[in-house]
Design a protein around this nucleic acid. Structure first.
Length: 325
DNA sequence: CGACTTTGACCTGCGC
DNA sequence: GCGCAGGTCAAAGTCG
């Protein structure tokens, strides 16, 4: 809903944010914090506040002793590369957007959401056209197909504007991680230089334009790279299940649904600052949820969320890494 | 029968 | 302009 403004003010160093477990990265909220180049310290600290770990904030790459997460290394920001090699290109798109002047009539409704509506409308119009011409012969149908696609191409060309994306890596045997939302697979492509295909999913909720890509890292087949694009405009329809794709139980506290965190009515009465907060919070909750990392709305991480034997971290991080830290 | 997946075709953007 | 790779569409298939 308010992505456009966020893009302008939040200086994200890269389009895709990696905080995974391969190559020594931990599924640790701290890494998420280091992934953003906040324009001012206030925002940075408020973001960490959302994580509930601001007391431990350190972006210098130092080793921190976190009671909740065992010891964790805060690594410099890293992009998802290799298997996600297009993210760099898209990053430049996002950055370019920031240099464009704000649209004069940029209201509280984002271009992304209105786009989605328009696209839906266009689809129905096109469908109607098709129905009218059902008695045409095959040759003309063929022709129509082409022109229809050309039209669609023109339309998308005019509007094409990528949502910001963020990605993370998760150690999992299952490709498609349960994250509380319902997804419909709409494509699968072979990835260059990788034996593993990339799957494309779209949120099944009507008018929700969120997409995600799922692929397995070819450098470490045990790692799944998930890239989210867009932001859910609805509450999670699926309650946490007892088993989340083999990485343990989700720990979203009661009442901390994305519906509560994202603003359904942004702009008019929400301050810009609070839009940031809510946006980041929702992204964060979605991400942490999908990783099985507990989100705590207060500033304390729930110790009970992590079992004594390192809990989720143990599932995600190779044991030798846990020991050596 | 609806929801979802599979899969080949097609489109777009980019580098050469 | 061409080829390549990523991304999307949509018909057909599958499943509960």
């Amino acid at each position: 809903m308010y992505m456009e403004k966020d893009n302008m003010d939040l200086k994200k160093t890269e389009d895709a944010v990696a905080f995974g477990s391969s190559n020594g990265y931990y599924n640790n909220p701290l890494l998420l914090s280091s992934a953003f180049d906040f324009s001012c310290e206030v925002e940075k600290s408020s973001f960490m506040e959302l994580l509930g770990v601001q007391d431990y904030y350190n972006n210098s790459g130092a080793v921190l002793d976190l009671p909740q997460l065992s010891k964790a290394t805060v690594l410099p920001f890293t992009t998802v590369n290799a298997s996600c090699d297009d993210t760099a290109k898209e990053c430049s798109e996002v950055l370019n957007q920031k240099h464009q002047p704000a649209t004069p009539n940029s209201s509280s409704i984002s271009s992304a959401s209105s786009e989605a509506v328009n696209d839906e409308h266009n689809k129905t119009v096109e469908q109607d056209d098709h129905d009218d011409d059902s008695e045409e012969d095959e040759g003309e149908e063929e022709q129509q197909k082409k022109t229809k696609k050309e039209l669609k191409a023109k339309k998308t060309k005019q509007k094409r504007q990528r949502e910001p994306r963020f990605a993370f890596m998760t150690k999992s045997e299952v490709d498609h991680l349960e994250d509380g939302y319902r997804w419909r697979k709409y494509g699968q492509k072979a990835v260059k230089n990788s034996p593993f295909p990339r799957s494309y999913y779209r949120c099944t909720s009507a008018s929700c334009n969120v997409k995600k890509r799922v692929e397995r890292s070819f450098t470490d087949p045990s790692v799944v790279v998930t890239t989210y694009e867009g932001q859910h405009i609805h509450p999670s329809p699926v309650m946490p299940r007892s088993a989340i794709a083999g990485v343990g139980s989700p720990m979203i506290p009661p009442g901390v649904s994305t519906a509560n965190l994202g603003s359904p009515l942004p702009g008019n009465y929400m301050s810009h600052y609070h839009q940031h907060r809510h946006h980041h919070q929702q992204l964060l909750v979605n991400t942490l949820f999908s990783l099985g990392i507990p989100y705590n709305n207060s500033n304390n991480i729930d110790n009970s969320s992590f079992s004594q034997d390192n809990g989720l971290l143990q599932d995600i991080v190779p044991s030798h890494m846990l020991k050596e830290k």
